[in-house]
Simulated scan of single mutants.
Amino acid sequence: MITVGKTQVLTIERITAIGAYLSDGSNEKDVVLLPEKEVPKNSRVGNEIEVFVYRDSKDRLISTTRQPKIELGAFAVLKVVDITKVGAFLDWGLEKDLLLPYNEQTVKVQKGRNYLINLYTDKSDRLCATMKIYPLLKADAPYKIGEWVEGYVYQINPEIGAFVAIDNLYHGLILTKDTNSDIHCGEKIHARISEIRNDGKLVLSPNKKAYKEIPKDAVVILTKLNESQGFLPYNDKTDAFIIKKEFNMSKSSFKRAVGKLLKEKKIKITERGIEKNGK
């Protein structure tokens, strides 16, 4: 049986002017088109081809030799490339972008940002993305208290905290008292396990010993200052998203690093931004 959303090896049943029709061999009527531009040269009837099967813009089954960034049932961090009346569209490596319906969003997504999603099929057998991944995660992570882990924030509840998918597999939570305004859905988190709850879910602490990050972050800022003739148009009023994009650090980390550089009198702050002393 040909499966939507999966990479599979199919056999060429016939070749036409618009492409090759592929089958899994179980049913001659159960075929899917591989467009002519993707059919390997010198292909013949009976040849096997590895393809990914999905639906085109008209909801017709179609296959591609391209490798998507995600397959059915899996998790991936994808970028929002467009927002329309029906939802957001994500870049998943294929010609037709992947739909993230509004009712599958845990937060209002923004164009250009990345979000952790799971791929599923809706009632019409169409591939869609969902940010509602809480019930899909496991609580038997093989980690101990004190170990450091990585994951992506997929939901934020102001009263509870930031929910994190550790290794895209396990439940993680950063309590509200340990979060800050810089944390957003889609952000990659490096945190220490501070507690393993009775239900097996992990409580994370990303701020432990944060002062140790200051020297590294300060070096990043100084390096960028040197590359920009001693001036950078950023300060504590700059949006956290821009800080993350330009410096690859949270706004709180940026402010700590700037504070250290100010204390050491290596920089000065003006209305225009940051200036290196003695430039």
Results as ranks from 00 to 15, higher is better:
105 Q>L: 04
106 T>L: 04
107 V>S: 04
107 V>K: 06
107 V>F: 02
108 K>R: 07
108 K>M: 04
109 V>E: 00
110 Q>L: 13
112 G>D: 01
112 G>E: 01
113 R>I: 00
114 N>H: 04
114 N>Y: 09
115 Y>C: 00
115 Y>D: 00
115 Y>M: 00
116 L>V: 00
117 I>Y: 00
118 N>R: 10
118 N>I: 01
119 L>Y: 00
120 Y>Q: 03
120 Y>M: 02
123 K>L: 11
123 K>P: 09
124 S>G: 12
125 D>G: 03
125 D>T: 08
126 R>P: 05
126 R>S: 09
129 A>D: 02
130 T>A: 01
131 M>G: 04
132 K>D: 02
132 K>R: 09
133 I>Y: 03
133 I>E: 00
133 I>F: 02
134 Y>N: 10
134 Y>C: 02
135 P>Y: 00
135 P>M: 01
135 P>H: 01
136 L>E: 04
137 L>K: 03
138 K>D: 11
139 A>I: 07
139 A>Q: 07
140 D>R: 03
141 A>Y: 02
143 Y>N: 03
143 Y>C: 01
144 K>W: 06
146 G>I: 03
147 E>N: 04
150 E>I: 05
150 E>H: 10
151 G>Q: 06
155 Q>R: 15
156 I>A: 08
156 I>H: 08
159 E>H: 15
161 G>A: 10
162 A>K: 07
163 F>R: 05
163 F>L: 11
164 V>C: 07
165 A>Q: 06
166 I>R: 05
166 I>D: 08
168 N>R: 10
169 L>Q: 15
171 H>E: 09
171 H>M: 09
172 G>V: 03
173 L>Q: 08
174 I>E: 04
174 I>Y: 09
175 L>F: 08
176 T>C: 12
177 K>G: 10
178 D>M: 09
179 T>S: 09
180 N>T: 11
180 N>S: 11
180 N>P: 08
185 C>V: 14
187 E>Y: 15
187 E>K: 14
187 E>N: 15
189 I>D: 05
190 H>V: 12
190 H>I: 07
191 A>W: 08
191 A>S: 11
192 R>H: 10
192 R>L: 10
193 I>K: 04
193 I>A: 06
194 S>C: 13
194 S>L: 12
195 E>Y: 14
195 E>H: 15
195 E>M: 14
195 E>C: 10
196 I>C: 12
196 I>T: 11
196 I>R: 15
197 R>P: 07
197 R>I: 08
198 N>L: 12
198 N>R: 14
198 N>G: 14
198 N>S: 14
199 D>V: 10
199 D>H: 12
199 D>A: 13
199 D>Q: 10
199 D>Y: 12
200 G>I: 10
201 K>E: 14
201 K>H: 12
202 L>D: 07
202 L>Q: 13
202 L>S: 09
202 L>N: 09
204 L>Y: 07
205 S>K: 14
205 S>N: 15
206 P>Q: 09
208 K>N: 11
208 K>I: 13
209 K>N: 15
209 K>C: 11
209 K>V: 08
210 A>N: 14
212 K>L: 15
212 K>I: 14
212 K>P: 05
214 I>A: 05
214 I>L: 02
214 I>D: 06
215 P>M: 01
216 K>T: 04
216 K>N: 03
216 K>G: 01
216 K>V: 05
217 D>N: 15
217 D>P: 04
218 A>K: 07
218 A>S: 11
219 V>R: 14
219 V>S: 12
219 V>F: 07
221 I>T: 02
223 T>P: 06
